[in-house]
Design a protein around this nucleic acid. Structure first.
Lengths: 202, 202
DNA sequence: GCATCACTGGACTGCACAGTCCATTCCCGC
DNA sequence: GCGGGAATGGACTGTGCAGTCCAGTGATGC
């Protein structure tokens, strides 16, 4: 459990600065390579401040997981609102590929990358990541359900399975993109997702 | 480059023991959590032996990458030989799901998990992982090409893209399986791969 | 003005770890 | 059997790091 909620606005901003700095370092290097000294330096916070707001290192990492998933979802929030039309889905896919091209295929998925680092090490962090995926996949599932209600998707189609398969293609595509330093890997994966979803069209 | 090839058979077995122990520790914990002391203890090798066969820690990790990819491919070697029939592909998929059920959805993909840990940190390790994926995906691509030659796959289908999309579904499915501790996530992903591949049937 | 509590500074401790060094033993060819 | 390189043992060094401790400061209510 995260130590305590800061009571004053000043405390809140200090805590936020620490989490932000930690999240940046985790994204740039890795969770294991993030040191509390680095975090303190970047956030202009002393050692005491870190331990004032977090129980220990693991507690801070969990806050990073939450901040990272929130940030990934927020960044594509509008796109996720329109996954109930084919055009909206295509727009989402194109944005994801464009983002990878921009980043030159570096870094992979900020959430997915953490799975291999934390899932087997910290059960609470794993749950936080699972929650992030659930919120993400849920948005697609809801979009597909609305399409089904409007008769755009076959009545026999299963929006849940389609959403899961699409998330798998997205995550797998990002992994291959990262390891091969080639954004077209994600494009290929999402083209396949398009085929899969269209094959369930009404 | 890996320091030197051991010249005597005794040296070869010592080196192999070290790599094996290191690979186990990396799989059980993570690459960052593997310490040279642990490796030495498990392999019954002294510090000097580690540095006799490897330049440094990173060099050993690279050997672990190679050993891990080799081992993953070897374990499913026979299955990969028969990816030129629908029955062979289904058999492969079923074996992958069965394996995850056996392991209770723990650990994810030994290769995929390393991507998030090493890809942005050690370019050589990233290349080793990319090579592993290439050898893996290549086996599927070759199977699909043989199917195309025999008229089982549409002439307009692209075995390369299909193989990439299938690998993405496999890796993404394993990631979701690991983070949700639920082997049926992989089943759903591979069912989607089946739909995708069949949609390219002749 | 003073009491209280959130908040901050920074030195200190202890340890785990990567990497070094030098000495010794083993094995092979000759 | 002996010379030399391969292989091994294990102590040693330095450092980076998580976590602790105690002493402060600042704001807020009364």
């Amino acid at each position: 459990m995260s130590q305590l909620q800061p009571l004053t606005t000043k405390g809140q901003s200090t805590r936020a600065r620490i989490v932000q700095a930690a999240a940046e370092l985790v994204a740039e290097k890795s969770a294991a390579a993030m040191s509390l000294d680095d975090v303190g330096a970047r956030a202009s916070a002393s050692r005491s401040q870190l331990y004032h707001y977090f129980d220990d290192r693991d507690d801070l990492i969990r806050a990073v997981v939450r901040a990272t998933t929130d940030s990934v979802l927020l960044a594509q929030d509008e796109l996720l609102d329109h996954l109930d039309t084919w055009a909206g889905i295509d727009r989402w896919f194109r944005a994801l590929v464009a983002f990878q091209e921009e980043r030159q295929a570096r870094g992979g998925c900020p959430i997915g990358s953490l799975v291999g680092q934390l899932a087997e090490r910290d059960p609470l962090a794993r749950l936080g990541l699972a929650d992030g995926f659930e919120r993400w996949e849920g948005r697609l599932r809801e979009g597909l359900e609305r399409m089904q209600e409007r008769g755009r998707l076959s009545v026999t189609a299963d929006p849940g399975s389609l959403a899961t398969a699409t998330m798998a293609l997205l995550q797998g595509g990002l992994l291959l993109t990262q390891v091969r330093r080639d954004p077209s890997q994600l494009r290929t994966a999402l083209d396949a997702a398009r085929v899969l979803l269209r094959s369930a069209a009404a």
